[in-house]
Simulated assay, not measured.
Amino acid sequence: MTGVRLLTVPTTGPDDTDALDTLSGNGYSADDVLAVVGKTEGNGCVNDFSRTLAAAAWEPRIGPDAVTVFSGGTEGVLAPHVNLLIADDTHDPRHDRGLVAAVGETPVIPPEDLGRVGQMEAVRDTVAKLVVDLGISADDVHLVLVKCPLLTSTDITGLRDRGIEPASGDTYESMARSRAASSLGIALSLGEIDEDTARAALAGQRTAWSNRASASSGAELNTCHVLVLGVSTEASNPLRALHTEMTDAYDLAALQKAADVVAQDGGRIRQLFVKAESDPSGTIRGLRHTMLTDSDINATRHARAAVGALTAAVKGDGAVYVSGGAEHQGRPGGGSVTVVYEVDPVPTAPSNRGADL
């Protein structure tokens, strides 16, 4: 079990690691970092080299067991930033619980397994292990964040040369296939779906999802980096978490309801982790949208900008983690939501902290 603190720091570019100065200014070192979770200002698509640059800048400066998760795309009002999850098991008796985190990696995902059962099971097993390591139940988990690989054109050619058809022959579509497999692995590990449902969903059904899954894909890695966040009574720190979902890209009410729960708990929002996607039906509340038919701008970029504005308005600034492409991460057209918040110590009976919505 590892208690954590959270630092959110704006960045001037993908290679900006000045947040390490903020880290030391708060009494921590790079060895205390469990995860660096950032938003970079690339296009968020296959050739988003801002993610690769950020990973290359950060990974030599943190411990070998720490993970990086960089999500490209800061369209609209989204602000480039990093979130540092810092190990801190300081016991504060004024708090009856606290936020805990565990990180890990799957084995290398072979290109032939990407977007398929092999990737799904690798994520399932890694998440399950991390939950056990934290000593919490699946119900205490409020976010599982995964960064997963995609298929490059070289991967696709190599598979076909070996007589293997890839999950997709389109590199951009492979990002969605990878996110889907990772998200279903998360749902399996948390007991939200069974194997038959997961396999049907992997084959294309959109009837299964997790409101605690957040997956993004990139070319900068060949394993899945995994971060599990939960709340434990064995920890004593001021951070809490809750999870919910947006039912569509307009669902400001869901975010406001989450903010109300935080306020009722006497808390302050520290960060939101939100998934966004263009509704695959082509409509939102009965009106046609053009995000899926725009040949100039990828649908994931539209979704990040739209949902990013709502999320930033609720938090009060644009340094929010909004990631595009929400396959099985919340219901179709919507997206999973996790709120991390901070409470003041209170010498009273525990409230319903960390509850689901």
Results as ranks from 00 to 15, higher is better:
T8P: 02
T12I: 13
D15Q: 13
D18S: 15
A19E: 01
N26Q: 12
Y28T: 13
S29E: 13
A30N: 09
D32E: 11
D32G: 10
L34Q: 00
L34N: 02
V36H: 04
V37T: 04
K39S: 10
E41K: 07
G42S: 10
N43F: 10
N43R: 14
C45Y: 12
V46K: 05
A54Y: 03
A54N: 06
A57L: 07
A57Y: 11
W58N: 04
W58K: 00
G63M: 05
P64V: 06
D65E: 14
A66R: 06
T68V: 10
T68W: 02
F70N: 01
F70L: 15
G73I: 02
V77I: 12
P80E: 09
P80N: 11
D88R: 02
D89Q: 09
D89I: 04
D89E: 12
D89F: 09
T90E: 15
D96I: 03
L99Y: 10
V100C: 11
V100K: 06
E112I: 02
E112D: 15
D113V: 06
V117W: 04
G118W: 05
Q119M: 13
V123S: 07
V131W: 00
L134T: 05
G135K: 03
S137N: 14
D139A: 15
V141P: 07
V141I: 15
H142A: 06
K147W: 06
C148R: 00
C148F: 01
L150A: 09
T152Y: 05
T152C: 09
T152H: 08
T154H: 12
L159V: 08
R160Y: 08
P166I: 03
G169V: 12
T171K: 05
E173I: 11
S174G: 14
S174A: 14
M175Q: 13
A176K: 03
R177N: 15
S178I: 06
S182H: 07
S183H: 02
S183W: 00
G185Q: 07
L188V: 09
S189Y: 11
I193S: 00
E195R: 12
A198K: 07
A200I: 10
G204S: 13
W209A: 09
S210E: 07
R212W: 01
A213I: 08
S214G: 08
G218P: 01
T223P: 03
T223L: 01
V226A: 04
L227I: 15
L227N: 02
L229W: 01
G230Y: 04
A235P: 03
P238F: 04
P238L: 12
D251P: 05
L252I: 05
L255H: 04
Q256C: 05
A259N: 13
D260N: 15
Q264F: 09
D265E: 14
G267F: 00
R268E: 10
R268T: 14
R268Q: 15
Q271I: 02
S281N: 14
T283K: 13
R285T: 10
G286A: 11
R288A: 12
T290M: 10
L292E: 12
D294V: 12
I297N: 13
N298W: 01
N298H: 08
V314H: 07
K315W: 03
G324M: 04
G324C: 02
G324Y: 02
Q329H: 10
G330R: 03
G334K: 01
S336G: 07
V339N: 03
Y341F: 13
E342A: 12
V343E: 15
P345Y: 05
P345D: 10
P347H: 13
P350E: 09
P350S: 13
G354E: 00
L357K: 03
